[in-house]
Write a protein that binds this DNA or RNA. Structure first.
Lengths: 343, 343
DNA sequence: TGTTAGCACTCAAATATTTCGAGTGCTAAC
DNA sequence: GTTAGCACTCGAAATATTTGAGTGCTAACA
């Protein structure tokens, strides 16, 4: 069977009506509210066809039709085909804040409030090139290492030492560390480099080892992709999700998303493989079982220094895709703007 | 009317039965499951008295009795009277982690998982005595200020300058800042001190102003009492809360609790006024409207350096107080232990 | 005077029953 | 190919019915 133009029109009408109302849509509704001028009976025939083709289904006999994942997919794809122009009133959503962290939290919040879906925003990911390292004396047995990496991200770590370093010794360590590590990315720091440094350190080799270890821990630490979520409780607003037995699990997932290695990995993957900036995954298309009744819409933003992060929305499959996509485009646009102006 | 021993026994039996079952408890139940050997009729009479006295009430005629806030209060008070011995198997709950932040998150998580209530943990509050300040060069127009305050909390801030400071100039600033600010608490930093510093800075007074401002911002910033919550979704497990119209609001409150100045202030207040380490607020006893159907149980922990923070649980009034209190005692005990060993 | 058995009454919750109507599929006619 | 008409389906809502735990009250008993 073929998906002719009329079928397409009907399908789109069904999906968009369903997106609005959340009720299964019947043949009469479509007959009345499209410009096709077809009777309900004809629509019924077409609907029957569309059902055979897998785009729509009935939640039970004698109910209207609702889109299948495939139906949503078709709708979304054709939506993406149309050019979505960013709305005129942009630039007002975000207030300028200096701290990256706050900014991203704000983005998550803004998104959640404006869309009524759950949102998540990841920190931009850098390749962690070291900009500089600063060691300071805290007390007799503690040092503070401050490491600034590409993207002006500051990490710090307290390091316990057995030997009480004097100020001039710390200074020497600072010089040594910076000489070797400045500009180095994680991959650059290999065993060879380390042993060279140790040779240079001479009698201090052992302490260097301790310090070095602390520094590496610090660099890796914040690396574990922070995710900010917001509006998780918005999920409660969608009955189709609440009834689904996974609702509580989903909320839980969102709550402690920071722990869910797996989930984060998944997000990363999504970011990686997309070429376009907007990516939509519907229902079963999501690998994660928790999301099987949801749709995930993500967009990437880019930092001037090359960092890359994701803004995403999790909501019911019955989601206002158009609004969400526009929203995401606006926000990533705004982020770009802010970051570029800041530089 | 007087609350004689028998009435007390019956009241306690009612409350504790209700805590277990969540159902209104009737006279027969009490008659059967207490060692009083009284018929249900007698119990009924006593219950009627207890109702007159305000300790229990009926959700509707011809239902059993449930405790009023006053009833809970009586129960909890008498519970607190008994000595609660910490459980033997303590010390295993928390894994040692180095970062304060992680540790507190873990505490929140452990509590949430073990109790099935929502939990919140605040960062310890210090009086923010400056331990030392370290200024570093980032690029031509940016400085990094790292400030360590009492309790080994590290704060940092990027400061934009108009004038490109050279290394030796930065060194001078470092010395200047540390000379004046080391050991200073927030109250110590007043206008007089600032103007003295400016005089010392001479031609650099203006830049000092900028830097100083940045530093003050940094110190204040993290000061805004971070709160970690966990297990907010546990609230969904308690039907009595879900039906209450405030459920969603409550969840929302928990979700972005970091913004709710008001709420945080409230917590602080609770911490302030308590002399004993455990504080319980039931229903209307809570100032916050959002908590009117909940109970809030808090405990304070103390850092060796004098910092003070709060661990708390939010749950339904029908809460396993005994377990929660024991749990909190254990955890604060563990925290103390860890902090002391660490030092 | 305190305790208890007995009984009529109440009322939420569970269960069963009915009604309603939106929606379908099919057929026959245009 | 389109449409009107009709019998049929079935969930949801409304309504009725049953059930049972629980109460308060009274009268009798120790």
């Amino acid at each position: 069977m073929e998906l002719d133009e009329r079928k397409v029109k009907i399908l789109k009408a069904i999906v968009s009506t369903y997106l609005e109302t959340g009720e299964p849509v019947g043949s009469r509704t479509i007959s009345k509210f499209t410009d096709l001028n077809l009777s309900s009976a004809t629509i019924r025939n077409e609907m029957s066809d569309l059902e055979d083709m897998g785009y729509i289904c009935q939640p039970h006999t004698s109910a209207g039709r609702i889109p299948t994942d495939m139906g949503y997919r078709f709708y979304v794809d054709s939506l993406m085909g149309e050019k979505i122009e960013a709305e005129e009133e942009r630039g007002n959503l975000l207030q300028r804040v200096d701290k990256m962290e706050k900014m991203l939290k704000q983005v998550a919040k803004v998104l959640a409030v404006n869309t009524n879906y759950a949102t998540l925003v990841t920190m931009p990911q850098y390749n962690n090139t070291v900009k500089f390292i600063q060691l300071s004396h805290v007390d007799d047995e503690t040092l503070l290492a401050v490491i600034m990496v590409e993207g002006n991200i500051v990490k710090n770590k307290l390091i316990k030492t057995t030997y009480n370093l004097k100020n001039d010794e710390i200074l020497k360590f600072n010089i040594l560390l910076n000489t070797f590590l400045q500009g180095a990315s994680l991959e650059d720091i290999n065993l060879e480099l380390i042993s060279t440094m140790k040779t240079q350190a001479g009698e201090y080799a052992e302490i260097l080892e301790t310090i070095f270890q602390g520094i590496m821990e610090a660099i890796h630490e914040a690396d574990d992709l922070k995710v900010y979520t917001s509006g998780a409780t918005n999920m409660l607003k969608y009955p189709e999700l609440i009834n689904s037995e996974s609702a509580e699990k989903l909320l839980g997932t969102l709550e402690d998303i920071e722990d869910k290695e797996e989930f984060i990995k998944y997000m990363e993957e999504v970011v990686q493989k997309e070429n376009s900036d907007i990516q939509i995954l519907i229902g079963q298309e999501n690998r994660s079982e928790d999301l099987k009744d949801c749709a995930l819409v993500t967009a990437t933003y880019q930092m001037p220094e090359g960092g890359k992060g994701t803004i995403g929305i999790i909501g019911p499959k019955r989601m206002d895709y158009k609004k969400v996509v526009t929203m995401l485009k606006n926000l990533t646009g705004e982020l770009d703007e802010i970051f570029n102006n800041n530089e």
